[in-house]
Design a protein around this nucleic acid. Structure first.
Lengths: 197, 197
DNA sequence: TGCGATATGTTTGCACTGCTTACATCAGCG
DNA sequence: CGCTGATGTAAGCAGTGCAAACATATCGCA
């Protein structure tokens, strides 16, 4: 219980390891099990009492990331209160999604950008929940459309924007401009509305 | 780096290493410099005569990937000949993009999904050229739109679709269905055309 | 022709990684 | 108190990226 005492047993090593891993990632340092253990002040084999292997730690960190991303998206939705037009909510979601990716690139890469083949892990659950949140957010915004496909399209667009920014595949710009680019991309899609068929 | 890479010992080790690396990736084996060297029948330090470090080999492989992807996209565009509607060309591009990612997942991950901070490397050049090809393909299709933003939006969508499929973030489906999903996503975007403002 | 310079490949070795095995320590409970 | 299981440690394995010293084949030039 005592936070100060450094006893043989570490109060909650599992959580401490996840936190240390996130710190490592955020600090841009190489994310090795040993480095994480070192940062938690513990021997390099200790993590294996709590995680089967490195992949398991990865997944735990990814799950944290999914929770945080969901918070960000929910906040972005709530922030605007009632919006005049559905596009604004969708734009806000996209901006928040890309902002998260750019603010925490290593965690975002860990969340996605991995094989993640285990069919029913906690990690897959977390990503599915995120998917559903997005769907539910998009669904009421555009009545009468093919919701499923449109949701897929918009999520993919946000995801692609995030990754392409992350990988520097766009002309580099000040971070404020990123939001502008996302807004423009969404706007370009919705601008098709007025276009002639 | 003369144009005629007539080598003495091995023949053309540089190319052989890139080929071996691609084989490794395609075989799902761990992509280590040593494994690549082993596969090329050469000592583990030999690659350092041709590549400054592992990143350099990565980049060389990525450049190959970009070339191949460009070929695929060009073929997809040409294949349909003159198309009745611009959506069809864009859909074909998207399907080809995602198909490439799923057919060669490891190479695709290497092409993107990396930091790639070097500002003017051959690798960055290759990705920029790809970007331009996409832009030029999209540009004439939809007159009067904000081409740059629309191009970004559509590329991002294809990129996101590719990565989300790769990461198993969609319900798993037979590979034929992937094309259908991509087509549906593009269709959902263009369906907005008819929607009321 | 001969011979040194240079490009290429090898050997060896270091620090690091993920992971395993055997052992040490502590908490909880009879 | 002592037993037992959970938790942490120490030591060591194979594999990795990388560097330095060494060896060799090919080229440029006399």
């Amino acid at each position: 219980m005592s936070t100060l005492e450094k006893s043989y047993h570490h109060g909650d090593l599992r959580a401490a390891l996840i936190a240390a891993a996130i710190e490592c990632l955020e600090a841009g340092e190489p994310f090795s099990l040993r480095a994480v253990a070192r940062r938690a002040g513990v021997s390099s084999a200790a993590p294996y009492r709590h995680f089967a292997d490195r992949e398991a730690l990865d997944s735990a960190v990814a799950v944290e990331g999914f929770k945080d991303l969901r918070k960000d998206l929910a906040a972005a939705l709530a922030e605007g209160g009632t919006r005049a037009r559905p596009e604004e909510a969708i734009t806000a979601l996209g901006v928040a999604y890309v902002a998260f990716a750019l603010r925490r690139p290593a965690v975002f890469r860990l969340m996605f950008g991995n094989e993640c083949d285990d069919a029913d892990s906690e990690r897959v659950q977390a990503s599915k929940q995120l998917h559903e949140v997005l769907n539910q957010a998009i669904e009421p915004l555009i009545p009468g459309a093919n919701i499923s496909s449109l949701s897929t399209a918009l999520w993919s667009m946000a995801h692609g924007l995030a990754f392409l920014h992350l990988d520097g595949k766009f002309r580099p710009e000040p971070s404020d401009e990123v939001a502008v680019r996302v807004q423009s991309a969404v706007a370009a899609i919705f601008a098709l509305r007025g276009a002639p068929e």
